[in-house]
Amino acid sequence: MKFTIFTILFTFFCFNITKARPVSYPGGLTLMLMNSGMKNSLHTHYSSTAKTSLGYKIEYWRGDEFTLNMIQMNNLIKRWNKPESQANFYLKSAIGAALSDKADFESKKNFAGFIGISTDWENQRYFIQYSNRYTKAFEIKDFYTQFIHLGIAPYIGEYGDIHTWFMIKIDHTPEFDRNIVITPHLRFFKNVHLVEVGADTKGKIMFNYVFRY
């Protein structure tokens, strides 16, 4: 069973390689550091063309004390470019290994992977995003998670200005004890740097940083 599921995830991952769509510009490097009450993660990826990104991701899930080390691929399946807005539909997938810190598992290691979608619409004033994923780490943890992310910009800046967004992120993870997490936060965006700072309703700090070169 474990081998079958891993094979399905691996096949899906390979399928993505051949069906790549734009994600970043050709030659673009991206670094994403995400920290919240739920998890800490570092994801770095490279787009060899504007069709896809391939990268490495490490996540530490705080509640269940396990780490995922994965090769992740993001594919832009469809983009709608309009004069004043942009919308996207992404497919994301990853394969790798899970390692549990929990005493129950005694540093157990497993194959792991996830698949999911992400869709967003934005103009310079409003931002809305929905994303989900199903993560399979076998005996360590299998779970489904989704979130919605909303934003509004109080002013519209020019390229190179500091752009400010008032945002809220609502995470829903049915498998977790705390299955809904609401995090109001601020986003600051300038040139190649994006920073998000906030705290969820239980006071857990969110700090995200994205750098694109």
Binding site: K82, S85, N123, H163, L194
Partner: peptide, 16 residues
Amino acid sequence: VNGLVCDFCARALEMT
């Protein structure tokens, strides 16, 4: 250009 909504978009076009 259509779809030009943020600094990352601007950066992508600038670099390309």
